[in-house]
């Protein structure tokens, strides 16, 4: 198997002076292509920071990162290209744009990638149908349940056919039935698109779905 993500010595600190917190401490991590990895650990152990570093939405203070074989220079490089072409993100709090409908929230990711509007609309409908929201296309986030919002968020993450999807606590705001449904959906999507998936969770019950579990504590990886 080929490593699609390779992080070496990734380090991230927050705050200054005595208030500095070492969120991720010289972490080496590899994720293989089509792998489903769960990153687990207690609250505040650095899981979200780590996937934010790997997903190029947070700049590391130190360390090196390679995505799909390419070395990433977060300081000088325009990371927006990598974010829209290779990465899909699912956030714990969904982060859907409140003024757009479910359909438009998925389409906006393709609009950013300059996909033709008609093509974007048809793919967005296809994805929302796949996640079971065909009857919710024109609903705004405020009109959707937590589970529905999370599924829109997944559809948006898949919109530009990314190689990797990072999901930060995707089941944190869902009940157990919604969590099971979501995991089932993730497995289905993974089978269909062969996408690499990294999920941050503290939900022990989800472990069974993973190819591998990365356990974190105090900003470091304990075992993989």
């Amino acid at each position: 198997m080929t490593a699609i993500i390779e992080g070496t010595g990734l380090t991230k600190r927050f705050g200054t002076g005595e208030a500095t917190v070492l969120a991720v401490d010289a972490v080496d991590v590899q994720i293989e292509e089509s792998e489903l990895v769960m990153i687990m650990g207690d609250s505040g152990c650095g899981k979200t920071t780590l996937i934010s570093l790997l997903g190029c939405i947070l700049t590391p203070d130190d360390g090196e990162l390679r995505i799909d074989g390419e070395a990433i220079d977060p300081v000088s490089e325009d990371l927006s290209v990598i974010r829209r072409e290779k990465i899909g993100f699912v956030f714990q709090l969904f982060h859907l744009l409140p003024y757009l409908t479910a359909l438009e929230n998925v389409m906006v990711a393709m609009d950013i990638a300059k996909t033709n509007t008609r093509e974007a609309e048809s793919r967005a409908i296809e994805l929302l149908t796949q996640v079971g929201l065909v009857d919710r296309l024109h609903h705004r986030p405020a009109q959707l349940s937590g589970g529905e919002k999370q599924r829109v968020s997944f559809a948006r993450a898949l919109a530009n056919r990314p190689k990797i999807i990072f999901a930060d606590e995707p089941t944190a705001n869902l009940d157990s039935r919604q969590s099971d449904n979501l995991m089932h959906l993730i497995q289905e999507l993974r089978r269909e698109y062969q996408t690499t998936i990294a999920i941050v969770t503290h939900h022990e019950g989800l472990k069974a779905n993973a190819d591998r579990v990365i356990q974190m504590k105090d900003g470091r990886i304990l075992n993989t």
Partner: peptide, 16 residues
């Protein structure tokens, strides 16, 4: 800024 962050996280360039 939150929306700006979301747009950037899903791949929007600064110019967009």
């Amino acid at each position: 800024t939150q929306e700006i962050g979301v747009l950037k996280a899903i791949g929007a360039a600064n110019s967009y």
